[in-house]
Amino acid sequence: MNVLFPRNMPQLVKALGEPGARILAGGTDLLVRLRAQPDAKLATLVSLDRVAALRGVALEKPGTVLRIGAASTHAELLAHPLVRARLPMLAQALATLGSPPIRNMGTLGGNICTASPAGDTLPPLLVLGAELELASASGTRSLPLADFLLGPGRTALQPGEALTAVRVPLPEPSARQHFEKVGRRDALAVAVVSLAALVRTGGKGAITSASLAWGAVAPGIWRCPEAEAALVGRKLTLSALNSAARIASSRVQPISDVRASADYRRSVTGNLLLRLAAL
């Protein structure tokens, strides 16, 4: 197997045109999988290590959108003042992802393209309305994250295409952001259930919009419009959250696996909402 190290976007796009080419970002998932199950069709790994254009964070559209280079590591983002100040729910998710060395290696783009139902950054990025920038030899295109994720391990990424950046609209500072993950331990844990929430309130504290997304309870990131609708118009109180939690728990259809039973996941799916009362 060959490993290529493009240094800029034209070189990257060219490398991805090689037959049997595949992107190597942080390697924390791909190299484990390849070792367990070598892929005979895979001839070339294209490392993003040296493509400087894929790193870094920048404000766009007069301060309303954060453009995150897809090969930025979780640790780089966790340390970034704008991520911490304006996207606390993403920072909370990054802080629970893997372990310090995994966060030093793994990338945001890698977490997205792995498309795990338990991917820690996916629920926050979905409720924030992230848009992806994809590049190939035929140009660039933009796609909402919600349309990019097709199923467990499946995305809309085409052969020869790379995820180059993630554009995250910045919620106004008054919006409430929350992320919580329940795992078997604090570090290096695959989520048993996770929840990201973005809640906006109006004049008298009434909720004007609620965006909720759960990880690890469905084949993809799970949304529950009925629970969101149950919150709108009410104040962010325990009783309002209890109604939404009952709706979420009754509608979710999780599976039992090595990490938890379906019943436990169903309870936690609702119960995680109750934490919003403390916001």
Partner: peptide, 29 residues
């Protein structure tokens, strides 16, 4: 473990803590 979960293969790469079981030799250049 060889899968990034135990940290026994930890090294510093340009001062950053990484796992040498999840790095390819070519990435060390």
């Amino acid at each position: 473990c060889g899968t990034g979960e135990c940290g026994a293969c930890s090294i510093l790469v340009d001062g950053v803590h990484k796992l040498s079981c999840l790095l390819l030799a070519a990435q060390l250049h």
